[in-house]
């Protein structure tokens, strides 16, 4: 009896023990993400691409979902639950894993407004107090540290994020994005999301 309990304990331990750095996408943790974010983390429907994202950014967002800071409707509906039991060291391992996957651009924006979007991205619109995205997100929208890569994310995701900043939803504390986005009109948002969807 005692011995069978020991075996059961060992069996359960083996089943649930955390398994160090996340390797190839064949474990439950990764699968929990890729159900929605696409098999190789390239994004699917409303779930954004994680492949090639800055690991510090992924980590910070997992923390903000976990702490119920990032509070847009889909965040509440999906990500609060998904991150509820995720320990910081596992979040870091997942972030590292997805960051190393080669990202593919969504290419699903409106081609006709991409040139306008590029101008807004690179130069801002000084007369309208719209800052250049380039200053923080970099020349190829690749991001840095906890500033996200934007290049090649899907048009719908980029657009809804830019809209949500101005609608009073919360995300990263201390981010200048609420101020940035409050200056953007629908035409600029459409152009930026279109341009960025094509950036590789």
């Amino acid at each position: 009896m005692k011995q069978s309990n020991l075996w059961l304990a060992l069996f359960l331990l083996a089943l649930f023990a955390p398994i160090g750095p996340v390797r190839a996408g064949d474990n439950d943790e990764v699968r929990n993400c890729t159900w929605c974010h696409g098999t190789s983390g390239q994004g699917y429907m409303v779930a954004p691409r994680l492949a090639g994202q800055r690991p510090q950014y992924i980590e910070s967002q997992i923390r903000d979902f976990h702490d119920h800071i990032r509070d847009a409707p889909f965040s509440k509906q999906y990500m609060w639950g998904a991150t509820a039991a995720l320990q910081p060291d596992r979040a870091r391992a997942l972030a590292q894993y997805f960051a190393t996957i080669e990202p593919k651009p969504a290419n699903d924006g409106n081609r006709a407004s991409a040139a306008r979007g590029r101008t807004v991205y690179m130069e801002g619109i000084p007369e309208a107090n719209i800052v250049a995205c380039y200053a923080c997100h970099g020349p190829n929208a690749e991001g840095v540290r906890d500033i996200p890569r934007l290049g090649g994310l899907s048009y719908a995701y980029l657009r809804s994020r830019l809209e949500q900043w101005g609608q009073g939803y919360h995300s990263t504390p201390g981010s200048p994005m609420p101020v940035v986005a409050s200056q953007l009109g629908p035409e600029e948002i459409e152009a930026l999301a279109s341009y960025l969807s094509f950036v590789r």
Partner: peptide
Amino acid sequence: EAKLQYCKTC
């Protein structure tokens, strides 16, 4: 005020 906020964004 608007221009000041613009400077401070960056």
